[in-house]
Write a protein that binds this DNA or RNA. Structure first.
Length: 269
DNA sequence: ATCGGGACCTGCTTGC
DNA sequence: TGCAAGCAGGTCCCGA
């Protein structure tokens, strides 16, 4: 799924279609997601007008005056805007029907996604999250101080949502390549200067990916069912064994935290 | 407190 | 061709 750029692409895509619209009905065909969909979700949001379409970390938040609906796309989820008479297909688990005859349709083959209704302000999944990577509060200085004496490898460190949200496997690989840091280096052994370049690289790679409409490896589609195009700009992810685009040496492919990890042993130290 | 590994689930690719 | 194993973009939770 969906890392931050794909979630943001989805948020921007659905916003003009759902903002100001009222939810006419909710259809839940499959409630067994990462966590079961609470039965009260239906009655809580039905009749409510969407007045905000926001994103926090990889959650999409549909705000109403009564509370907000929180949607996570998991590994294989997507949200599309369709006419309500379009028949659902396999894995189309939830529909939000709006007053203009459109439907916001949630599809998620692997069911790692989730859906919650928040009547109050917070939620346990939103507590203790790190800063947004594109927020000015996310800096190299912040990473440097947080990482002192940490033995975890730097790739896992920047993928930890308590450290910074939204950096998934693809963009962690890409950012580390861009700044020449090996993914297995201990987080506590990365210098202040390196963290400054790393924080900047994370911002750049995420921003570029959002501009390209996200990365589609297999599942990801935006609100109108189209893929993202950042895949063509990936420098290392999925290129293990192929020549480094900088020095031509074959890229190494290893496992870090059970995730596919690709780097250049010559360019990254 | 920190870290690594297992778990959740389906579908596609790979190798025998 | 057929089947089983392996793997996939997330992230919570557990035990060490």
């Amino acid at each position: 799924m969906p890392e931050l750029p794909e979630v943001e692409t989805t948020r921007r895509g659905i916003e003009p279609h759902v903002l100001g619209r009222t939810v006419k009905a909710v259809i839940i065909r499959e409630d067994r997601l990462r966590w079961p969909i609470a039965p009260e979700l239906q009655q809580c949001i039905t009749g409510q007008q969407v007045d905000r379409v926001e994103r926090r970390a990889k959650y999409i938040l549909l705000g109403t005056s009564a509370g907000q609906m929180m949607i996570h796309l998991g590994m294989s989820g997507s949200l599309r805007v369709l006419d309500e008479d379009v028949p659902p297909a396999r894995h189309d688990h939830v529909d939000l029907l709006f007053d203009d005859g459109k439907v916001l349709r949630f599809r998620d083959p692997r069911r790692f996604g989730s859906m919650f209704w928040l009547s109050g302000s917070g939620h346990f999944l939103l507590d203790d999250l790190g800063p947004e990577p594109l927020d000015p509060a996310f800096t190299g200085d912040y990473l440097f101080h947080l990482s002192r004496k940490r033995k975890v490898v730097v790739k896992s460190f920047i993928m930890n949502s308590h450290v910074v949200v939204g950096v998934g496997n693809i963009y962690a690989n890409e950012a580390l390549f861009r700044v020449g840091i090996r993914p297995r280096r201990a987080a506590g052994r990365v210098t202040r200067t390196e963290y400054e370049t790393l924080a900047a690289a994370i911002k750049v790679v995420l921003t570029e990916a959002i501009a390209a409409g996200g990365t589609t490896l297999k599942d990801f589609v935006n609100e109108s069912g189209s893929p993202g195009y950042f895949r063509h700009d990936l420098k290392v992810y999925g290129r293990g064994g192929e020549p480094c685009l900088t020095c031509k040496k074959p890229l190494k492919e290893i496992r870090v935290g059970q995730r596919q990890t690709v780097y250049c042993s010559n360019c990254q130290r």
